[in-house]
Structures are given as C-alpha cells and as structure tokens.
Design a protein around this nucleic acid. Structure first.
Length: 323
DNA sequence: CCCTTCCTCGCTTTTACCTCA
DNA sequence: TCTGAGGTAAAAGCGAGGAAG
C-alpha cells in the first residue's frame, strides 16, 4: 500500500483523477496504457524531471496532493479510494504550466502529441484533449476581448476626432453667420446711400439680396426686414420660391450659408467698380461648386443627426473610410 | 452515395476553490 | 476560528457537424 502513502507519485494521482471508465475504445487503451506505465511518467522524461522538481512550490499543488493524501491516508479505505464517485481534480500548477508551454508551441493537438503529453503529465489523453479544447476556447475569448478593446479605442479616437471637427464646424458656421450679418448691414447702408432707382438696380445687384439666406433666416435676430420687404416685393426670386418648396419648415436658412460665405470672402467690394462687383457677385453666386441639392435638403436633418458635420451621406462614407 | 468512426467546436453543467460576512 | 452563501474558473458532458476510410 505504499502507493497510497504520503509519497504520491504522478501515477497514483492519475489513478485518483482518472478512475472513471473511459468512454471510447481508444480511451480504454489509453487508460490501460496509463495504468500499466510502470515508471511514473513524471520521472521518465527530462522535461518531467524539471516538472517533478517544481513540485511543492505551489500551494495549489500542495492542496491537490494533500487531497490525494487524504484519499489514501485518511479513514477511507483503499477500495473507497477507487470506487467512490470520481471527483474532479484540478490540474496542478506544474501540469498547467507544462500544458501552457505546449499550447504556445502549437494550440492544436495531433494524436501522437496528445499521447506524449498525457504520458509526460500522467494524465489521460482525453484530459489533455479537453484541456486543449478549453484552452482554445479561453484563448478565443481573450482574442475577442482584445479585438473589442482595440475596436473600442479606435471608436473612441474617431469619436474624439469627430467631436473636435464638429466643434470646429460649429465655430466656423458661427463665424460665417456673423460675417454674413455684417455684410447684410453693409449692403443695407449702401442701398440707403444710393437713390432707389429701379433703372439702376440691375437684377445682378438685387441678386445677392435675393439669394441672401439671412433674409429668410428666422435664426437671425437682427433681420433687415425693411430691406427684405423693399426688394422682396419686386425681387422675390424664383430661387426662393423653388427653395421654399423644399424648406417649408423655414429652418433651412443655414442651407444657403455657402452663398453668404462666398460674399463674406469677397476682398473689398468697395474697391471694385460696379461691373466688377456685378461680375464677381455673379460668379460667386453660381451654383457650381456648391453641394448638390440633396445636401441642401438634408442639411438641417444632418445637423440634427449630429453625426455628419454637414457632409452628405455619400461624402461621409468615403470620408470616414478614409481613416 | 451511404455508413461508421473519430475529431473538433460551441454551449452547458458540474465541481473545486476562493472570498466575505 | 468556524461556517455557509455567493462568485468564479476550470474540468468535463453533450450534441452537431466535418473529414476520412
């Protein structure tokens, strides 16, 4: 009964751990092979010499062998040892360490390797296979967690970039807004200084005011209503009419900001002759280069969406993918 | 083409072990 | 110090599906 004594070898622990009948023919052979391996496999290979030397350094290992000792040295008889319902036994730290090293080399088991590992660790080949299976599952979980963290950090970065750009966009829009307001006031002053003669007011002169979105914007408190009314009676543009059909909610003034901005960035209108002024206005008022109609129509919604910085959906897709 | 066997995988259950009140 | 509840990690069970003979 020395095998059940305090000096529990790897083989005896195997007997403890693996008393369940194997469930397949090859496992039956495995079981026979394990129990018939005369020298304790722990001492049979060079790797296991180290493995055996490491024993006792780990408390869990101690626990495991203490339990084994209890099974053999305690009140329970030898028969009880082998006929009581099998209890799960955690692999020892050394066994796990050995399996981990093997897993690092190759996370899949071929039959020969499985048998060899089982032999080295005094485990059932099935136990080795199950350990690898569970280990692969854990590895996969970790990988998923890593991927999640990676994606999350990427998302956070994109989100921060977006917030920055959104604020910048808002700031620029406010700037455009205020400059447009100044421009309207300047236009009003110019209109007052010049006599209101219908013959002198060319459609081109009136066009900036007609196209002036500020005049329609309910968001601008300092609205030059008088100017609007003066011109609107005679110069109510088709643009407004056509736009109004799309902007029935009256909140689309900002859609026309690009027009304003084109004026805003005019050098010094007073330095130009009237013809130059007109031609410049005409060129600046050309719709070419402005976002397509779709964007105008969707701009307000896009703003509410707060996820697009005013770019069209199509633009967004390419814009973000550019990352 | 069908059947059998073996293996892996994903999911679930069971068990051992730890922590804490 | 002991104990029981609760939580967690790991070993093992189970069924589905693929590959090979």
């Amino acid at each position: 009964m020395e095998g059940c004594g305090g000096n529990i070898t790897g083989t005896s622990s195997v007997l403890l751990q693996n008393e369940r009948l194997p469930c397949s023919s090859h496992e039956a052979l495995d079981s026979l092979w394990i129990s018939n391996s005369s020298p304790p496999p722990f001492h049979g290979s060079t790797s296991m010499v180290k493995f055996g030397d490491a024993r006792g350094e780990n408390t869990r290992e101690k626990t495991f062998f203490a339990q084994s000792d209890k099974g053999y040295d305690g009140s329970e008889s030898y028969d009880n040892c082998f006929h009581q319902p099998e209890k799960k036994r955690r692999l020892t730290a050394e066994q796990v360490q050995f399996l981990e090293r093997s897993f690092e080399l190759e996370n899949k088991l071929d039959p020969e390797r499985k048998v060899q590992l089982a032999k080295d660790l005094s485990l059932q080949p099935r136990q080795v296979a199950i350990w690898f299976q569970n280990r692969r599952a854990r590895y996969k979980t970790k990988q998923l967690e890593k991927e999640y963290d990676c994606l999350k950090s990427s998302y956070d970065k994109l989100r921060a970039d977006y917030d920055t750009l959104f604020k910048e966009n808002e700031s620029l829009k406010n700037e455009v807004h205020s400059l447009a307001e100044k421009l309207v006031q300047r236009e009003r002053g110019k209109a007052k200084s010049e006599p209101l003669d219908s013959s002198t007011i060319s459609p081109l002169n009136a066009e900036p005011q007609k196209a002036n979105p500020i005049a329609l914007s309910p968001n601008v408190p300092e609205m030059p209503v008088s100017v609007k009314q003066e011109d609107a009676s005679s110069a109510k543009s088709d643009v407004f009419d056509s736009d109004s059909s799309h902007c029935t909610d009256g909140n689309h003034s900002s859609l026309m900001v690009p027009d304003d901005s084109s004026h805003v960035f005019e050098p010094e209108l007073s330095d130009f002759s009237q013809d130059e002024d007109d031609s410049l206005s005409r060129s600046l008022l050309q719709p070419t280069g402005f976002p397509p109609k779709l964007e105008y129509e969707c701009y307000n919604d896009l703003q509410c969406n707060s996820g697009n910085l005013g770019f069209s959906i199509e633009d967004q897709s390419t814009w973000f993918w550019a990352y």
